[in-house]
Amino acid sequence: MSALLQATGLVKHFPAGKPGLFERAPQVVRAVDGVDLSVAPGETLALVGESGCGKSTTGRLILRLIEPDAGTILFQGRDLRREPPARLRELRRDMQIIFQDPFGSLDPRMTVGRIVAEPLVVHGVGTTAERARRVAQLLERVGLAPAHAARHPHEFSGGQRQRIGIARALALDPKLIVCDEPVSALDVSIQAQVLNLMLDLQRERGLGYIFISHNLAVVRYMANRIAVMYLGKIVEEAARDDLFAAPQHPYTKALLSAVPEPGSARAKQRIVLTGDVPSAIDPPSGCRFRTRCPHATETCARLEPALTPVADGRNVACHLVTPPGHA
């Protein structure tokens, strides 16, 4: 498979607390701690997990909006971390992002037209007239009217703003879009509109998506492959249907069973996890999930399970699935 994007060994540790003039920050938050992932052209890879698992940070590391501490990012075969800033800017044309917050991610002082045109201006694409035409096309494509270009973001509802954000991301005809919780701030009826729009755009343009979400049902609707993250690591990775049919990692199972569904026939057999997610400043030894895992053994505390292939395209990091020394 020739990957559109291939990231290996991504690491990001943030200093805990802001260092002052004289003191050093003694602790680090291990936000992302060795993540590998790849996306093929036209494919959607979902990153799921709960808050603090590092999924949003991973998305930003890939775009180098946050500088990784370690790891390589190959985009269309080129190593993003070795490209000089000028080349990186060029590559950015092909990788865009859609944000969670439809209110904060649009500059309130700009007109919608200027917002959508900004990527074109930054990369010096077209004349003013050409850009205006392109903006009109983009707005129409995402379900707004070309006349909306003259208005300001506050005149729009959340769903419409998210469409504006999508139009901006599409302006440069990217090949990969990181979607960071794109619908989690929207009402359900609007959420469906935006998800359908994103699917249509993907089909039309062969876009690759990295779809970051905490909502498993949404992920099931959108993704081809899914990576489940817990405390800065991927614990399970599988094709969509495999993951939902038979989750293997205990955390994936718990996460799936925690989602309430209306009118579901499935027995309400909940795996209710005890306790909270531990702090990423001082993650548990061995397997990070062991403090909440109903099946944890002594081995889990001692040894960190590696993400191991268990079947074609399926990886799990759990001693119970792949006993140490076995695989």
Binding site: S157, G159, Q160, D187, V188, S189, I190, Q191, A192, Q193, L195, N196, L199, L216, A217, V218, R220, Y221, F244, L256, V259, E261, P262, G263, S264, A265, R266
Partner: peptide, 24 residues
Amino acid sequence: EGLLASIPRLEGPISRLDAIPGQV
């Protein structure tokens, strides 16, 4: 009916979501 049709599900066949058009 529209609300129920517009939420993605964890099980069953995956078909295109039937979104409610427009807004409140």
